[in-house]
């Protein structure tokens, strides 16, 4: 589902990613770990084409990103649900409208939007907060809204960048539980985190990065 072949990315003489080759198979749930600056976020950005590699090739859900026209990028991104570190929720829209945005972008009929948004909010147990605005929610609740927004479009891949960054252990555990449920539906998940507790005893594959280099894999 996600394939990197000798991929490198440089920022003004600094190496973000160096010669990385790895794959994440369809239906797999894997983790990328490493210290801050290890290249985790860059790697995710390369997947959702917010960045382009300087060297190597990337294939995402059958799309070769180097052959991708700019006008096709939105259609690749519709295959990917993204859970951002900084949430990226729209403050002037309530929970319902934030989650519905993913579907409205795709031109989904408004009745179907309602059904699917409530289904997604049910999965993250936030149906009672549909009318709330992001600023009135806790960090954990905001992250759940972001997850709902990421899955409501029924993506084939879900990317999460430090999804438990500022959350307490219980909330973090709740979020991982939701990810497992999502993964059980066949969605490929790649989670970037520096928090080792998150993947400990999960039995999932963990890809380790250090200053942009691939340093090995282990089971969580």
């Amino acid at each position: 589902m996600i394939h990197f072949y000798n991929v490198s990315k440089f920022y003004e003489n600094q190496t973000a990613i160096r010669n990385i080759t790895f794959s994440v198979e369809k239906g797999e749930m894997a983790f990328i770990t490493g210290k801050s600056g290890a290249g985790k976020s860059t790697l995710l950005k390369l997947i959702y084409v917010a960045e382009k590699p300087d060297e190597g090739k990337i294939s995402i859900a059958g799309w070769e990103t180097d052959k991708l026209k700019e006008s096709s990028i939105p259609f690749l991104r519709r295959n990917i649900g993204i859970v951002f570190q900084d949430f990226r929720l729209l403050d002037n829209k309530n929970v319902f409208d934030n989650v519905a945005l993913t579907l409205r972008i795709r031109g989904v009929d408004e009745n179907e939007v309602k059904t699917r948004v409530f289904d997604a909010l049910k999965m993250v147990t936030l149906r009672h907060k549909t009318g709330s605005f992001p600023k009135t929610l806790s960090g954990g609740e905001q992250q759940m809204v972001v997850i709902a927004r990421a899955i409501v479009g029924e993506p084939t891949i879900l990317l999460a960048d430090e999804p438990t960054g500022n959350l307490d252990p219980d909330t973090a555990a709740g979020i991982i539980r939701v990810f497992k449920e999502i993964n059980a539906k066949g969605i490929t998940i790649l989670i970037a985190t520096h928090n080792r507790e998150l993947f400990r005893n999960t039995g999932r594959r963990v890809i380790r990065l250090d200053t942009g280099n691939f340093v090995g894999e282990e089971a969580g």
Binding site: R77, I82, L90, G153
Partner: peptide, 16 residues
């Protein structure tokens, strides 16, 4: 600008 960046990442086309 921020909102537009988010829309782009969610798969919005230029037309949208």
């Amino acid at each position: 600008k921020e909102e537009i960046e988010t829309l782009k990442l969610l798969g919005a086309t230029r037309g949208f």
